[in-house]
């Protein structure tokens, strides 16, 4: 039971890192960035490249993957979203162009690494066990939980307590007011994409480390989950996304214990369904009337 709870918090932490970035872009730009799972995958491959090709230690690969995917996020915005934004295109166009980026990037990664599961070179990824009472736990997961929680605290400070965060929130609430106030909107959007994609990429590295496995499509299962988490938490609410992520992690692990394994994905849909019926605006979402 304790081990199940431990795993639930671990997977919830990965979902949370992934989903806060997804929710951040949604709250600022009102678009669903369907390339976010690709950024997740790229984070893992950036770490693999740093470790296997450049011969760097894992603890350097983590910040490298963060910065590399953050920069990729800025590039993604310039290529897939900024041109549409200038033309005032509807959010649906942005979804399609981010999907196109996803397909292209997945192919490029497969050209270099193939489409199968791969592992990190032997002995390059940290792995150790800890014993708590009668339970044996994977130590890396504890480190990942700790790092995720620390990062979410840093993100909270950044968004709530800094000038950049204030500008990002202003842009999310009222783009016209943000422009009138002299906020450099494109710079704030670039920062949003750097943070969002950096955290998404980091989630990818951490999951790849924990399982010692990565592949070009590893981000896809996260897409539906991030969407579920965002709806459950309240569209665009960052604390909502974090709470939703841990709820989903707990629910999935519970469903594995009590239900056949095939129903794991059905659980995410089921949770989404229930929340939409009971509380359409999500746990921490504002009622539509409040948003206007």
């Amino acid at each position: 039971m304790f081990e199940q709870l431990y795993n639930a918090i671990f997977i919830g932490s990965i979902y949370a890192l992934f989903a806060v970035g997804f929710a951040l872009v949604f709250s600022v730009l009102d678009i669903l960035n369907l390339a976010h799972p690709t950024v997740f995958m790229l984070g893992a491959f950036a770490a693999l490249f740093a470790i296997a090709t450049l011969g760097l230690p894992w603890w350097l690969a983590v910040p490298i993957a963060f910065v590399a995917t953050g920069l990729f996020g800025i590039l993604l915005d310039r290529i897939a979203f900024a041109p549409l934004r200038r033309r005032g295109a509807p959010p649906l166009s942005a979804m399609i162009s981010s999907l196109a980026v996803t397909l292209a990037v997945v192919r490029v990664v497969e050209l270099r690494y193939g489409g199968d599961f791969i592992t990190f070179p032997a002995g390059t990824v940290p792995s150790f066990l800890i014993h708590v009472g009668g339970a044996t736990l994977e130590g890396v997961r504890l480190a990942i939980i700790g790092l995720s929680i620390a990062l979410m605290l840093v993100l909270t400070y950044l968004v709530r307590g800094t000038a950049l965060g204030r500008e990002i929130r202003a842009l999310a609430e009222n783009p016209r007011a943000a422009r009138i106030l002299g906020i450099d909107v494109e710079r704030a959007i670039a920062a949003t994409f750097f943070i969002s994609s950096g955290l998404g990429g980091l989630a990818g590295v951490l999951l790849a480390f924990a399982y010692n496995s990565l592949d070009s499509r590893m981000g896809l299962p996260l897409e539906l989950r991030a969407f579920t988490v965002m709806v459950v938490g309240g569209m665009g609410s960052l604390p909502g996304a974090v709470i939703g992520a841990y709820l989903l992690g707990l629910g999935e692990v519970a469903s594995l214990v009590y239900l056949p394994a095939e129903l794991r994905d059905a659980f995410a849909f089921g949770l989404l369904f229930l929340v939409l019926i009971a509380r359409p605006q999500g746990l921490l979402g504002q009622r539509p009337a409040d948003r206007i």
Partner: peptide
């Protein structure tokens, strides 16, 4: 020029409808 460049140049607007950030 972009709006932020114009504000930086010293032209600042109090817009119609006030455009305050209601949730902040």
């Amino acid at each position: 020029s972009a709006p932020h460049a114009i504000v930086r140049a010293g032209i600042v607007q109090v817009p119609e409808g006030r455009e305050i950030l209601a949730r902040m």
